[in-house]
Computed example of a mutant assay.
Amino acid sequence: MITVGLSLKDRPCLVVGGGQVALRRIEKLIEEKASVIVVSPDVLPDIVTYHEAGVLQWIAKPYSSEYMVGQQFVIIATDIPAVNAQVMEDAQGVQAFINRADVKDDSTWVFGSATEIGDLEISIFTNQVSPRVSRLLRQDIEKRYGILAEWLPQIRLWRQELQHILDTPKEREQFWRTYLGESEFIQIVEGQEDSVKENIVHAISRIRSES
C-alpha cells in the first residue's frame, strides 16, 4: 500500500454505521471538510449533533445500494457482516476507495495516526498491525519534537529572505546543509537551539552585507 496524503474537501464520503468506530472516522472526515453522508438506523448522539449542526447528512435507514451512487470514499463500519459485504460489493462496483473496519485486508485506504506540530503534520502508519503502537509513536513524536512548532515559522522567514539574497537553489541548499545539518537538528531537539539560531542569523547577515 502506498502512503499518500488526500485532500477530501467537498469529496463525497459515505459512512455505513453509527457506532464508535464510525464516529472516529467521521470526525476525521469532518476535520477535512468532506461531504459526509451517514447511513444507519441508529447512531451515537455525537453523530446526531453533527447532523443537526449541518456538518453531515444522516440517513436514518438501513443501507441500500441506492446510497452508493456518486460515492468516492466509503467507510464500512457496521457490526452486521451481511450488510458490510453488500456495501463492499457496491463500493467495488463504483470503484470507490474502501475503508472496512471488520476485514482490514479489504481496505483500499486507511487512516493513519496523525499529529500536528505547528506547521508540521506527521502521519503514522503501521500497516494496520497495531493502533496501540501508532498512538505511542504519536505521543513520543509530540513530546520529542514539540519544539519544532516554534522553529518552523522562523525557518519559513529565513527561507524567504535567502531567496532574495542567494541566487540559485544550489546555493540555498548548501546554506541549509551547512547551518542546519544533523548535529544542529539534534541541538534543537535537545533544547540547545540558541547557538544554532545565532549562527544562522549571523550567516544571513553576512551574506546580506556582501550582496
Rank of each mutant, 00 (worst) to 15 (best):
D102L: 11
E66N: 09
V74M: 12
G146Y: 00
T78E: 05
N127V: 00
Y67M: 04
L162D: 12
I80S: 07
R156F: 13
P81C: 03
Q139F: 01
G93W: 11
M88D: 08
A77S: 08
A85C: 03
L166Q: 11
L137C: 07
R135Q: 14
Y67I: 03
I165D: 06
Q72T: 05
N84I: 08
R132N: 10
P81A: 09
E150K: 06
S130R: 01
V87L: 13
G146Q: 00
Q86S: 15
K143P: 00
R156W: 10
S107M: 14
I76G: 05
N99A: 11
G93M: 14
L152H: 03
R156L: 14
N99S: 09
E116S: 15
P131A: 07
I165E: 06
N127R: 12
D79V: 05
H164W: 09
K104D: 04
S64L: 04
V129Y: 09
F97D: 08
M68Q: 09
S64N: 12
A96T: 05
V87D: 07
Q72F: 11
R135S: 15
V94A: 15
K143F: 04
F111N: 07
D140I: 01
A114H: 05
T115R: 06
I165C: 11
S130P: 04
M68G: 07
D140L: 05
S123P: 01
A82I: 04
A101F: 09
V87C: 14
S113Q: 15
Q139V: 00
I141S: 00
I147W: 03
S113L: 11
A149Y: 01
F125S: 15
R135V: 09
G93T: 05
L157Y: 09
R159H: 14
F111V: 12
G93R: 09
S134F: 09
I124A: 02
L136M: 12
T108S: 15
F97N: 13
Q86P: 03
Q95L: 08
G146E: 00
F125R: 03
P131R: 08
G118W: 02
L148R: 00
V83R: 00
L152I: 08
Q72A: 13
I147K: 06
I117S: 01
R159G: 12
T115C: 15
V129G: 06
L166D: 07
Q71D: 01
R132T: 06
S64H: 10
R144P: 00
L152M: 11
I155Y: 10
D105Q: 14
A91M: 10
A149W: 00
Q92E: 15
G70D: 04
S130V: 05
A149R: 02
E150L: 10
T115V: 08
V69Q: 13
A96N: 09
N127P: 01
R138S: 04
N127G: 12
